[in-house]
């Protein structure tokens, strides 16, 4: 299910965050327990707890004692803000690096982005 060399608990946290952002888990709704997540993704229970706790620490999830784990109010906005902060490092910088490697000039890179924007329905 999860691959690569990023620690598994981070991969699980990223996946949960994706689902919160996409609206699969609306704010104030319950997310699966760490045990269920561990069973579902073949993960060590401690690893799954660690992944969930990462989002709890960031304030995207909160625990109701004895009931479960819920998506915090404002979690979506919080996670979106985090992603906006990372947009440059995660996507723009690799794009520019790759374009330079291919010998594209700055103007050509700009045109590429504009063209893509024009084609994508907003």
């Amino acid at each position: 299910m999860f691959t690569g060399t990023t620690p598994l608990f981070q991969q699980l946290a990223t996946r949960l965050a994706d689902d919160i952002v996409s609206g699969t888990y609306p704010e104030e709704s319950a997310v699966p327990s760490a045990t269920d997540l561990a069973v579902f993704f073949d993960l060590n229970p401690a690893t799954a707890s660690k992944g969930v706790n990462l989002l709890v620490e960031q304030g995207a999830l909160y625990k109701k004692r004895g009931i479960g784990i819920f998506v915090a109010p404002g979690a979506r906005e919080l996670l979106l803000a985090q992603r906006r902060d990372r947009l440059r490092a995660d996507f723009v910088e690799p794009l520019v690096r790759e374009a330079r490697l291919l010998g594209l000039r700055p103007a050509e890179i700009e045109r590429l982005v504009r063209d893509t924007l024009a084609k994508e329905p907003s």
Binding site: T35, A38, D42, N44, P45, A46, A48
Partner: peptide, 27 residues
């Protein structure tokens, strides 16, 4: 294994030479 160990925590040592199948279970 995962559900039972989560609900009844204990120490499990699992020996295998098929590492890919079980890698994600280990801490």
């Amino acid at each position: 294994l995962v559900r039972d160990v989560a609900e009844h925590p204990r120490t499990v040592i699992l020996s295998t030479h098929h590492v890919e199948e079980s890698e994600s279970l280990f801490d």
